[in-house]
Design a protein around this nucleic acid. Structure first.
Length: 151
DNA sequence: GCCAACGTTGGC
DNA sequence: GCCAACGTTGGC
């Protein structure tokens, strides 16, 4: 079982939206590294820290769970979508995604500042400057620590 | 296959 | 809204 951190902008799709939806296809990822994590490494039952980016303040607000095998993100074939990719071949889709289930919303967010200030989280990718990846792997140690900080 | 130009992310 | 840090694109 692996652990992850997934970013989302609360204005677009935040933890409350996931709570309401219960389950959501993680579509719109158009970065190869992030895609590879979903396609090649995620397994049903993996847990992910749900992170609000472009928020004030940014930080981890809850937990989601991988709920499906990887499958093609249909928006890549939708000409009216921002995520349309004309170069993707329907017989060999370029962009894959998984579904996430809502697991938990933390009573209080663990802000990026808190993450950065916590010695035990040293090396966590999201705290590092220039990490723009919307999906990053997280060690179990770091995952557990963030959960403890939230409670 | 190099690399300049361009686009995007996301903290601040 | 600025801009640093990346990723991608495309000409050569």
């Amino acid at each position: 079982m692996k652990y992850w951190l997934i970013k989302s902008e609360p204005d677009v799709f935040g933890i409350d939206d996931l709570k309401k939806a219960k389950r959501e296809p993680w579509n719109g990822i158009r970065n190869y590294q992030a895609r590879n994590f979903m396609r090649d490494e995620m397994e049903i039952g993996d847990l992910a820290l749900f992170y609000h980016s472009n928020a004030k303040p940014p930080g981890v607000v809850g937990i989601a769970e991988v709920a499906s095998e990887p499958y093609a993100d249909n928006l890549q074939f939708d000409e009216n979508s921002n995520y349309h990719d004309p170069k993707s071949n329907p017989d060999d889709p370029r962009w894959m995604m998984v579904d996430f289930n809502f697991v938990e919303k933390f009573p209080e967010m663990v802000s990026l500042d808190q993450l950065k200030g916590e010695k035990a989280l040293e090396g966590m990718l999201v705290t590092q400057r220039g990490t723009r990846l919307s999906i990053t792997p997280v060690s179990k140690k770091h995952f557990d620590k963030v959960c403890r900080m939230a409670r």
